[in-house]
Every structure is written in C-alpha cells, then in structure tokens.
Amino acid sequence: MPTSPATALHFSLCLSSQKPTSPSSSAFQQPNTQLAAKPKSILHEHPLYTSTHKNLSLHIKEKVLCLEIMGIDSGKALSLNPSLHTATLDSIQSIISFIQSKGIHQKDFPRIFGMCPKILTSNIRTELNPVFNFLSQDLKVPDHNFRRVINKCPRLLVCSVRDQLKPCLFYLQRLGFEDLDALAYQDSVLLVSNVQNTLIPKLRYLESIGLSRNEAVDMVLRCPALFTFSVDNNFTPKYEYFAEEMKRKLGELKEFPQYFAFSLEKRIKPRHMEVVQSGVKVPLPLMLKSTDEEFMELITLSQGAG
C-alpha cells in the first residue's frame, strides 16, 4: 500500500475493518448512517436494486460508498462489472494501491474506473502488471508517463497483452506505424481495436471505393483516426455524398483523408451548398478546415476574382 493513500478513499476502505460488536453499538450506527445516506437514491433508482432491497448488507453499502467517493457511478459500475458484487474491499484496495504505484492520481479514478470498472476486479499479476510491462518494453513509455497513457486510453488496462495489445501493435507496425510515441500518447485507441473485425474491414472499404492497397494504407498512416470511424455510419454516407453530390475526384480524398473526420450534416453539406450557390471552386481542405469567417471571406474573394 502507498504510504499516503487518498484520505477519502482510505476512510471508506478502512470501514470494512470496523467490525461492530452488536447492531446497537454506536460504532455500527455511525458508519451505517454515513454509508446509507448518499448511496440510497442510487441503489433505489438502479435496476439492480429495486425498492424491495431495503436491507442491504454493510458490505454492499461500504462498496457503493467506496465507488461513489472515487467519483464513480456505483450503479453503472456494478452493472458493467457484476464481479464487483462479490469482490472484497481489500481486493479493490489492492487494485487501487497498485494503480497509484504506477503514478495514477486519485483525480483520474472517475474517468479510468468509470469507463472500465472491470479494472477493479482484475488480477494484478496476470492482467494489470503485464499491461504496464507492455507499455514500458514494447511502447518504450517511461514510468513517469504511464499516467498520461492510461488517461488517454483506460481500456488498455482491460486488454490482454498476449491476445490483443501485442498482435495489434505488430499489425500496425507492419502497416507502417513506426512512431511509438504517437501510438502511446495520441493513437493508443488503435491498440485496443480488433484487427480482424475493426481495422482490416476499414482498409477493405477504402479499397472498395477504388483505392489501391498502398493508397488506403497511406491514408490511414496520414490520418490514423480513419481506423476509429464506422464504415456504416461514417465512411459510406460521407463517400456517397462526396461522389454523388459533390462529384469530386477520388484523388482529392487521397490527398485529404481528414475529410471523413468532419461532420456530414454540420460541416460538409452546408459548406458544399455554399460553394455550389457561389459558383466558385474551392479545394476540399480549404472548404472544410477554414473557420466560418475564413470560409465566407474565401467565397467572397473568389467571387470577386471571378
């Protein structure tokens, strides 16, 4: 355990060691009052705890308070990770202590554990420690930067190094992702993506619209976010609008893959309509990257020049 754990969290975890001698003792009544006060509405509102659950055990109440003190929605956490129901506070405290030993701060807990409550019931030796070893040995992340990486992508801590992280890193490196810093600090979400079900289908889609394999790879290398976009909800509608309504050439997408990062309804369509109505030709990057003021000035100047 850290020598100076977060005070609030330490208080909640220490409650488990306060074993009352009798239900009427003040030692029992005081913690029970504190524990029931905040979680009550949460427990009653969440489907896991209907109004019939009036006599929750002290063990559950302590656990709920522990999660709430960390800023975590206890109902959501218990729903996403049923194993928390039977996990002991000692085991949760061990996880917290281990995570803190890696440089993670208490203020990071709501984001990290809120997104991935499974971490709280992970095995330190076989699941969590291998992830930090992967960050250190494979991504060359120094210990003092663990916090930065984990905050960027908490899901790293619930991924298998052998079955997920290493195979994904190998695949990305084969494609040409050579910048380990970029993968660690900017594009770490790619490492938690499924190669077969997520990454490969997106490359195949880009090839299906007429790009060569090398051209598709070059696009994702220049704009890694392409690997995070949905084929059905992003690529397909945006490409169809690009080809059918905008009637632009595929070469423009090769040069500006960031096109897929802009909102179809809020940016692409309105800007395209302005261009059509003005009767001027505007390069795709200028059309989409410009601020509203810059875009209107561009249209005005182009019309004047015409």
Rank of each mutant, 00 (worst) to 15 (best):
R174H: 13
L221E: 01
F260S: 02
L180K: 15
V195P: 05
R248T: 01
Q164F: 03
P270K: 06
L157V: 13
P237Y: 02
F262L: 04
F256P: 00
R174G: 10
P142V: 09
T198I: 07
R248N: 03
F256S: 01
Q196H: 06
P167R: 07
V231S: 05
C223Y: 03
F260C: 04
R204G: 11
V217I: 14
Q164I: 11
S122F: 04
L139T: 12
I200G: 10
H144E: 14
Q258A: 11
L180V: 14
Q258H: 07
R125N: 10
T236W: 04
N233S: 13
L250Q: 01
E255S: 06
F235A: 01
K238S: 01
K238W: 02
D232V: 05
L190T: 00
V141R: 12
F256E: 02
L250M: 04
P257F: 05
F146C: 11
F146P: 11
D143F: 13
E127R: 10
C153F: 09
H144K: 12
R174A: 13
R125S: 09
E265Y: 07
F242G: 01
M246R: 01
L253H: 04
M246N: 02
D181A: 15
I124H: 06
G251V: 00
L221I: 03
A182V: 14
L139P: 10
E127H: 14
L169T: 06
E244I: 05
R148N: 11
